[in-house]
Design a protein around this nucleic acid. Sequence first.
DNA 1: CATGTCACG
DNA 2: ACGTACGTGACATGC
Length: 952
Amino acid sequence: MTDTAAPAKKLFLLDAFALIYRAHFAFSKNPRVNSKGLNTGAILGFTNTLVEVLQKERPTHIGVAFDAAKKTFRHEQFADYKAQRQAMPEDIGLAIPYIKQIIKAFHIPILMVEGFEADDVIGTLAQRAEAQGFGEVYMMTPDKDYCQLVTECVKIYRPAFMGNAAEVLDVAHVLQRFEIERVEQVIDILGLQGDASDNIPGIPGIGEKTAKKLVQEFGSVENLIANVDKLKGKQQENVRNFAEQGLMSKELATIHVNAPIEFEAEKLVLDQPDEDELRRLFDELEFRQLAARVLSGPTAPTSTPPPSRGARRPSVPASQQSLFDGPGITASSAELAELEPNGPRRTLADVPHQYHLIDTPEARQSLLKHLLKQKEVSFDTETTGLDTMTARLVGLSFSWLPGEAYYVPVPQDDADAAQALVDEFCPFFEAENILKIGQNIKYDLTILKHYGVEIRGELFDTMLAHYLLEPDMRHNMDVLAETYLHYTPVSITELIGPKGKNQKTMADLPPAEVSDYACEDADVTLQLKHVFEPKLKALNQLDLLNEVENPLVPVLAAIEYEGVKIDSVAMGEYSAELQGYITELEQQIFAAAGEEFNIGSPKQLGEVLFDRMGLGGNKIKKTKTGQYATGEEILSQLASEAPIAGLILDHRQLTKLRSTYVEALPQLVCELDGRVHTSFNQAVTATGRLSSTNPNLQNIPIRTEKGREIRKAFVPRDADHVLLAADYSQIELRIMADFSGDATMIEAFRLGQDIHASTASKVFGVGLNEVDGEMRRKAKTVNFGIIYGISAFGLAQRLNISRKEAVDIIDAYFQEFSAVKQFMDDSINKARELEYAETLLGRRRYLRDINSRNATLRGYTERNAINAPIQGTAADIIKKAMIDIHHWIVDQKLGTRMILQVHDELVFDVPKEELELVTPKIKELMANALLLPHGVPLEVEAGTGSNWLQAH
DNA sequence: CATGTCACG
DNA sequence: ACGTACGTGACATGC
């Protein structure tokens, strides 16, 4: 231990072959080959791992160990040692020289000792490093044998690319994993159970479970053998007969920490890489993305910013002056900036700040004057609740300098005074040239809308910024502050107490108590903006934020505010009608079952169907929790054998319609305006789509006749309006056609053909006129399958055909649309290298499991690599269209209102006299929202009617 | 609060 | 040898 300021010493020792084999294996299903025919999977995988550890872990010392080529002492001891192991695959043999060159170019020493394996070398060096005072030594390997070497300071580092996040295994992990008391017992476990890949035989009949049990009981192999008579039956026999082999196995599994190699710390110090040499190698290997990430220089702007150190203080333009003079401002952000990623978390009490309560007319005017001088201001609203329709404003907070913020309480119990105060700040909210920053700013927009404020000027939403950076994480402000500012904000619970009956609201507290909390929100939001903006810029995602996500916010706020009119009377009538059918079905089901039970309970249903009625024969399936599976698929197969199954399906459908839609929707009609206001969430999906909640208006039934009826209750605001529904035709398939550049499919779209019929004609080799309904249906399913990353199994299941037939169809498809096949392969390969997929506008989905050894997980991620860019690009397009249309409507001062988005469809409430103007313009704006790279046209179909069903 | 099921694109 | 088409949200049941 040392007190000096020098960074703590951190040594990484890499087991080269173990990492190379793993990397090679990860790519073996779909090998990466460069233009010279060299299989580069192992090289890329290894290099990725190396780069990752350098960038994320920042070791001070590092070395890479290779097995020596010659026989090791283990071969002398045990003739069969590793005899089972296949000769090194040729691809790996060819890869090794490149990998060594890359390691050398990084100026990292290669460690090899004649007659010893890499694990012995690493074990020896790790132990000696610890003896010399290294507090952090990481053995980088996927090999579990190393567990025996783990100590207080020496740990195993399993690299991230193997499907899971990077993982550090310390003593506690090892003891837990093997269920042992001392780390040395790892070799007893390995000695007993053996290791097939190393051809360590172990003792027959002893696997993982038994080995653990025996070591727990006897402590060691030797003691087990000494007490062999305490065992029973076959096990005793085995241990007796194979005792020698057990001891030999233990010896083979032991890593020897006495290799003849000195630990010379200065030789392992991490050095700057030879960038020119790396560039040359990456060039030859065609690792373009890797080069961009690793190398600086003209062709490769780095996309990996250094680890976050919290907020950097932005340079402050002259116009940004503190409202009050005094110290503290600079200190606060400067200190935050110096925090280590894992350093202490700070709270308001630890950080210098200047938060001000502004509660006099004079102070408000002064604040407003300063606000109007700023170029960008973060603000937040405090309200009485989260429901925007009923929440009242309690206060406003503002910040434009880190560590400094202002809170303006809004008068309670006097609506006019509250309105007057909000009006005072209108000049700020309506200022075109001030950027407004907020966390989930749509909420604040909506609250202010209820006070008649239409915010103008550009917006920056930190929640959306983070959504682009990490789409599949959560985006709570508290978590963001912890992660990026190493700061813990005052929790809302601390302020207003836990959820419950007597839940207070902000309005119940004196303004002085709310002030710090509110100021902190504005302050933190401002600081987050300054962290996220450069990150997005480095990843080339700032345009996506500024031109799509942020401008979409007021559009969504307007849609939500507007709401949709629901005909509650019609809903009520339909509910009664459905109830009639449901009761009738219930009687029939009970009669068929011979007893009454809860049809809605999958548990009870399964017992009735399969236990008591004995249905299903040999094809009964269970869910992962051991219950009978009673899903749609199972029941429809059963329906031919037992009519009750069909009745249950009908019952399910009708109760679903009743409870989820017909009963629920009228209850969500807002009392104030008689309309339903959904919320669109802009930061939940992994692909970039919106989602809709409270209620979900993106899953209103349409596929069945009885479900479709519900759409009749979605109506225009009055008799002078109609609904206009405009949807993209086949947008995802068009994107696929365009991205792949497949001439056949593009031609079909250019000619305006029925794409499914055209696909059928190609796949089944018949003329377009000879395509029958069945062929078209199959082709349609295939087309959908393609977008989802098709598998023969999935297609067979959906089409209810054999796997063989499905394989034939897919083969024929790829024969005809070869560029599509190429596109799918390319998508996966690109994702393997980048570990993310991206859309037309650069929206990312991270695919960290793409190189997993778990075939299921990898397959799932590979399908995502194909689907995410397609689904996400469709989302990019419709978002852009929504922004364009909204602006046009506002510009033209029309009465038309956008009221819904359903992924590829927009619904509008249109005054009848605007219909002729609006319909073609909306179609045009949607079709031209974005141009696809190969120019495949987007088509939009539009319809109108006095309800949503008719509009289709 | 997790699970199964089913509504949509 | 394994498990299988992509993305969501709401409801009822039952621990």
